[in-house]
């Protein structure tokens, strides 16, 4: 049961973060929210082969839906997460039905155009979203009526971590189901899958909806934990950064998505405190390095190394 071990490790690392960095729980919660976004990109890019630079549109849809619901009196946190997931899934369906009409570069451009359109729409509809000031004043009621969201973010972090573990387990089932295998098949060779009698478009659209729900949960978590929703949650920059995290960790593995997020955001927190432009140079160099040296990301690199060592042992033995 390697998956069970993996899930235990995720929970253990999360709890270690809780005990080791009690002053940085807001950052850790942010990492969890972004990790959900990166997982959602992994579903469409890593498992279906649809490259997207606009996934923050789905993250933002969840964040704004949860935020608006909360301001209007729906303050139960689990309900808010559900609202975020539904809003993300709907936005995912919308985005998928537009993006899947095109291929290759046109598809990438469509994803960028969609996230920019969402950004402008959120900016324009300031009566609902607060525009460029952001949507503030979210008063979330205590979880299960018992655990209030405190100033130090303890409840928010533990809530986020449990959400992440829950979503991760659900996604493990999704990607190893016949549906998940079919998605991988489409990534490898869509024409062959079509020739075998499967419908490509509905399968990909379904994955887009699932991915949207995951991104929406991330957005709702960000809204609940920070109590504001800003325009930056529907930005091209967030989408591009999230894609970079995924590639850093490794496409097509759920563990890679998590590892990439933690490493990227941890470094960002340290380096950008010194000078934000040093951080840009570093990310750039890192990206070039990953493309040249480890095209399948850190998890791919680890896999190559472990395979090489076991093969070496086998040869000698």
């Amino acid at each position: 049961m390697p998956d069970l071990a993996g899930i235990v490790i995720i929970a253990a690392v999360g709890m270690a973060g809780y005990w080791l960095f009690p002053d940085n729980l807001a950052l850790l919660t942010r990492i969890v929210a972004v990790a959900l976004l990166v997982l959602s990109i992994d579903l469409v890019t890593g498992y279906c082969g649809v490259a997207t630079l606009g996934q923050a549109a789905l993250f933002g849809a969840g964040a704004y839906a949860a935020g608006i619901a909360c301001v209007n009196g729906m303050t139960e946190p689990l309900t808010l997460v559900l609202i975020g997931a539904v809003a993300g899934a709907v936005a995912g369906l919308l985005m998928g039905s537009v993006m899947l009409r095109a291929h290759g570069l046109a598809q990438l451009v469509l994803s960028i155009a969609i996230v920019q359109l969402f950004h402008e729409a959120a900016n324009k509809a300031s009566a609902y979203t607060g525009g460029s000031d952001g949507l503030s004043g979210l008063m979330v009621s205590p979880l299960f009526g018992v655990f209030a969201f405190d100033l130090w973010g303890k409840t928010a972090y533990l809530f986020g971590l449990s959400l992440l573990v829950f979503v991760f387990i659900a996604l493990k089932f999704v990607v190893s189901s016949p549906f998940g295998i079919l998605c991988r098949g489409i990534k490898e060779d869509p024409i062959r899958v079509r020739a075998m009698g499967a419908f490509v478009f509905p399968v990909l659209l379904k994955m887009f909806a699932i991915s949207g729900a995951v991104a929406g949960i991330g957005g709702a978590l960000a809204a609940i934990s920070t109590q504001v929703v800003g325009l930056d949650s529907v930005s091209f920059e967030l989408s591009a950064n999230a894609l970079v995290m995924l590639v850093l960790g490794g496409l097509g593995t759920l563990y890679g998505a998590l590892a990439g997020t933690v490493i990227f955001m941890g470094f960002e927190h340290m380096v950008s405190a010194i000078n934000p432009f040093h951080w840009m140079t570093m990310v750039g160099a890192l990206l070039i390095g990953v493309v040249l040296a480890a095209p399948s990301g850190l998890s791919g690199l680890l896999g190559t190394i472990s395979r090489a060592t076991t093969r070496g042992k086998g040869g000698r033995g």
Binding site: F277, H278, W279, M280, G284, A285
Partner: peptide, 9 residues
Amino acid sequence: IGITFCVIG
């Protein structure tokens, strides 16, 4: 994108 980031930085 990596080259762009480096140039900006």
